[in-house]
Write a protein that binds this DNA or RNA. Structure first.
Length: 640
DNA sequence: CTTAGGG
DNA sequence: CCCTAAG
């Protein structure tokens, strides 16, 4: 009887190990971030004013976003830090919102180009946030640290640093705001070019810090500290703690758990909490590869949180781009889908172009040859880029749609080794900045490719390794790209905040990811032998002790979880009740079905745990069986 | 983590 | 199989 046990493989899903392709992605991100940062620095260094400006711009942008999102909330400098931290979260939130709920109209609603007001400090923080995020990703920490708490020690640091730089930046920022986005972009050197430090970007932490350190040494520390303190301070963090270890969390289950349970708590959390959650989630993501996604709304919602961050990034990037290309106002609910997709595409492209443009323009300055970004208006190339947008006839509200960008190959110079350290990075270290640029550009396509409407279709991005890894890589990449885009876009475009639509776009991404990530376990019909083993175990143990059943009969069958066994039993019972004609799949011997029925009946009457009883008649107690459990076990007469 | 159920 | 709510 017992011989059924097949050589089962091993562990439960829980134990499944997923490759860490993600890490690569993160590393990439980190590297990118580092690069960006560096670029920022380098640019700054190259041009004292310019460099700062650049940075400031980026900050401004973020600030904008943030403010837009939470215009009312953020006010104080102290808060600023919070805000900054929040920013990310906001995005996230927005994304979610877009995707699902209009709730956050707040955030969305106000994406206006009122950057002017943005507090200087904020700008810095923003960057920090980004960095932070990046770092975290790299580190694998999920959470956004105490940011929310703002009160956290880190914040203090941040604030300080911010305040210092903040003032200057502020001024700069304001100027930029004043300036036309185009002009700005044109004017400012591209951040990407300078690659000095880029080499090491792989270790995002160090790199990022280094890059940013200039302006925000404080921040760095803060961010890091945040991570650590973070956990403490975060109320939510507790839950997210898991995420940290998440690094290794590869099990679906764990993921699920994290996702579902842990997140549940967060549903109410809005901005701040969300942020945190996002952070945590993100961290999780970093390590995770597969996500399960069904259409369950709740689930989705939760998951979204996970994706939020990335999506956020995307959104940001888009936002920036969108601002440039499409006036938010234009995009209205009316055209949602199309607009979104368009916006996305445009946004992405634009962003990319923008980035590129920066790079190009700046690079031209730098001596690095790269891709040049051409500005198209009404399909015509804008030759005089020195002119402001207005001068060119481009207004944020009017012609954005007509605005386009072109990428023109420029002289290429040896790209700095970005991430020699990280083998996994999809973006080849060796790949020159161009590659990055391209990848960036391409990435948007992904987004574009996926219309909001399309709920599930998984999208594959350009560079994909293994499928699983791809998704993640892609996502991560996207994120990275997005981040970069964002950062740059920010820097470049101090324009009005994103649209709701833009945000919506994000949702699309989320959807995509969902679809991508979640893959259903391959179906593995129970073999007759398995059924027999199951029946036997249930006869002995009864229903309701699925874990024991699993241990007893399927200990080695990693792919059979006790839930699976329970489900199988359920189906067996059902199968036994229906006519043979109605049964499908490999026919189960009637004998087994009879036993199923007998056991089912038996255990239905007797509490599962009342093993001791034996029923006269159909069930007998078998010694051997009884032995195991230490209790008398009832066995169907038939069997014997 | 397990159970028990619904999908 | 999946996902979850409850223990």
């Amino acid at each position: 009887m017992t011989a059924f046990f097949l050589g089962f493989q091993k562990r439960d899903r829980t134990k499944r190990v997923v490759e860490d392709s993600r890490i690569c992605a993160f590393e990439l991100l980190a590297s990118l971030a580092g690069k960006l940062l560096e670029e920022g620095e380098s640019s700054a260094s190259s041009n004292a004013s310019a460099g700062h400006d650049h940075v400031s711009i980026g900050k401004d942008v973020k600030l904008e976003t943030r403010y837009d999102d939470k215009p009312l909330k953020t006010e104080c400098v102290g808060h600023v830090s919070c805000d900054a931290s929040v920013v990310t979260s906001d995005w996230t939130t927005e994304n979610r919102d877009n995707s699902k709920e209009p709730k956050h109209s707040e955030n969305n609603a106000i994406l206006e180009p009122t950057l002017t007001k943005a507090p200087p400090a904020c700008s810095v923080q923003i960057n920090d946030d980004l960095k932070y995020t990046m770092q975290k990703c790299n580190v694998g920490y999920g959470s956004f640290p105490c940011n929310l708490d703002g009160c956290c020690p880190n914040f203090g640091e941040l604030c300080d640093g911010i305040s210092e730089n903040g003032v200057k930046r502020e001024v700069e920022t304001n100027n930029y705001h004043t300036m036309d986005p185009l002009e700005v972009s044109m004017t400012f050197p591209a951040p990407i070019n300078s690659d000095r430090d880029v080499k090491s970007p792989s270790r995002s932490d160090s790199v990022l810090n280094a890059s940013f350190s200039r302006h925000r040494n404080d921040i760095k520390l803060g961010s890091r500290d945040d991570d650590e303190k973070f956990s403490r301070f975060n109320k939510l963090s507790n839950r997210f703690k898991v995420s940290r270890p998440a690094t290794r969390i590869e099990d679906r289950r764990i993921r699920k758990l994290l996702t579902s349970k842990y997140w549940k708590a967060a549903p109410k959390l809005k901005d701040f909490e969300d942020c945190r959650a996002d952070g945590g989630i993100k961290a999780l993501q970093c390590k995770r590869k597969t996500y399960y996604d069904k259409c369950q709304y709740d689930t989705l919602y939760k998951r979204r949180k996970f994706f939020d961050r990335s999506s956020i990034v995307t959104s940001d990037g888009r936002i920036g781009s969108e601002n440039v290309s499409n006036s938010p106002e234009k995009v209205t609910n009316e055209n949602k889908n199309k607009c979104r997709s368009v916006a996305m595409s445009h946004g992405a492209c634009e962003i990319a172009s923008l980035l590129t443009g920066h790079q190009a323009s700046h690079k031209s300055d730098d001596s690095h040859g790269r891709i040049r970004v051409g500005v198209l208006l009404q399909g015509k190339k804008v030759r005089d880029e020195s002119r402001t947008l207005l001068q060119t006839g481009i207004s944020s509200e009017d012609n954005l749609d007509a605005l386009g960008f072109t990428l023109e190959p420029g002289p290429v110079i040896a790209p700095p080794p970005i991430c020699s350290e990280e083998p996994l990075l999809q973006l080849p270290c060796g790949s020159a900045p161009q590659n990055l640029t391209r990848s960036l550009v391409v990435t948007p396509a992904l987004d574009t490719g996926i219309p909001d409407a399309t709920p599930d279709p998984p999208l594959l991005t350009n560079s994909a390794k293994s499928v699983d890894s791809n998704y993640e890589h892609v996502s991560s990449q996207t994120d990275m790209l997005t981040d970069q885009n964002l950062s740059e876009s920010r820097a470049l475009v101090p324009v009005p905040a994103m649209n709701v639509e833009a945000l919506a776009v994000v949702s699309v991404n989320q959807k995509i990811r969902k679809s991508e990530l979640a893959q259903r376990r391959t179906r593995r019909p129970f073999s007759v032998s398995e059924v027999e083993a199951l029946v036997q175990a249930v006869e002995e143990l009864g229903t309701g002790r699925w874990r024991d059943v699993k241990l007893r009969a399927f200990e080695n069958a990693d792919h059979r979880t006790y839930v699976d066994l329970k489900d199988k039993w359920k189906t067996l019972v059902h199968t036994a009740k229906i006519s043979p004609q109605q049964r499908r799949g490999e026919p189960v011997p009637q004998e087994l079905l009879d036993r199923v029925m007998a056991a089912h009946a038996y255990w239905s009457q007797h509490q599962t745990k009342q093993q001791g009883k034996h029923h006269p008649g159909t069930l007998r107690i078998t010694d051997s069986q009884a032995d195991r459990i230490g209790v008398a076990v009832a066995i169907p007469t038939i069997t014997m």
